[in-house]
């Protein structure tokens, strides 16, 4: 017995986890895939009806789907870009000799560990057009109050702002850890060559940070694409459909319209998009010389 275990240890150790993932993940995704070729409204009387590619065809003609796709990319690209730029900036600031650095780092953790539903609620109050601090502040400095989450034009930037608030510190902390572990020699060499701060940043720091940045951006991107809690807790996709990203639209199709087939097709498309972006980034990262 013991011998058999030892000989097959790499399967004995991994199988429980693999079986668990297979049962909890692969089976549901398979079922979703199957449902995506059927029409079903969660009825107990009418079983799912085979419709082949109908759901997919309809999906790509559905304006709301296209819109939700665009919103998802808009949200992800803007949020992750802003977070990366701000995060790197913040990390460089924090990489100096700062009094109370440990405490500062700790406090920066708070936005990202706080419960998203609660975070959503806090921001709903902050953005509240009549009593929220955002408008009180704007009016104090003489600008007109905005409608934030209830304005079709401002809702996405407002949501992105929440995401930036929540996740910039994560990028900053990751980059900071990367900065600390950078070798000192290249900087000394550069200083002798007379390079200024900006040059040594772009020529030395950034290239050396590349692997760290790839990882941070990959992690952030996967989560940003899947953002659900914050949007659900603040606008539920509104006003109208102005913040209905693909995740929210999938939820609406499935649990409010009960178009299970179409919702499943949407989820499959969503799944493939997220998966291919992740694989693409991992490949990029590999090319940058980092292993998984």
């Amino acid at each position: 017995m013991t011998n058999w275990i030892d000989r097959n240890i790499k399967w004995v150790f991994t199988m429980p986890a693999v079986i668990f993932v297979a049962l909890m993940m692969v089976a549901p995704v398979g079922y979703t895939f199957w449902l995506s070729f059927h029409e079903w409204s969660m009825s107990n009387i009418t079983p799912p009806l085979w419709v082949a590619f109908q759901n997919y065809l309809e999906l790509f003609q559905d304006e709301l789907f296209i819109k939700s796709l665009k919103l998802m990319f808009y949200f992800t690209i803007v949020a992750v870009t802003v977070e990366t730029v701000l995060g790197v900036g913040l990390a460089i600031l924090m990489n100096q000799n700062i009094v109370g650095k440990g405490l500062v780092k700790t406090l920066f953790l708070l936005p990202m560990v706080a419960t998203p539903v609660a975070v959503g609620l806090i921001w709903v109050l902050i953005y509240e057009p009549n009593i929220g601090i955002a408008n009180v502040f704007l009016e104090k400095i003489g600008l007109p109050g905005q409608e934030w989450l209830t304005s079709q034009n401002l809702v996405m930037p407002s949501l992105i702002f929440i995401d930036v608030w929540e996740w910039t510190p994560m990028i900053a902390l990751i980059v900071l850890a990367g900065l600390v572990s950078l070798p000192k020699d290249p900087y000394e060499a550069a200083m002798i060559d007379g390079a200024n701060t900006w040059q040594s940043f772009t020529k030395i720091t950034l290239p050396l940070l590349k692997p760290t940045l790839y990882s941070a951006v990959l992690l952030r991107m996967i989560d940003a694409l899947k953002t659900f809690d914050i949007i659900y807790a603040t606008t539920q996709g509104g006003p109208g459909t102005s913040s209905q990203t693909i995740n929210i639209y999938g939820y609406v199709l499935g649990f409010q319209y009960f178009k299970i087939g179409q919702a499943s097709a949407l989820l499959m498309v969503f799944f493939i998009i997220v998966l291919s972006i992740s694989i693409f980034t991992i490949l990029l990262r590999k090319r940058a010389g980092v292993n998984l």
Binding site: E147, S151, T235, G238
Partner: peptide
């Protein structure tokens, strides 16, 4: 109307009314 009506279901609209606004 008040600001923010686009996100108002009855709890929000009722709140505006009951707060005297």
């Amino acid at each position: 109307g008040p600001k923010g009506t686009l996100n108002m279901s009855w709890p929000e609209a009722m709140a505006v009314f009951t707060q005297g606004q």
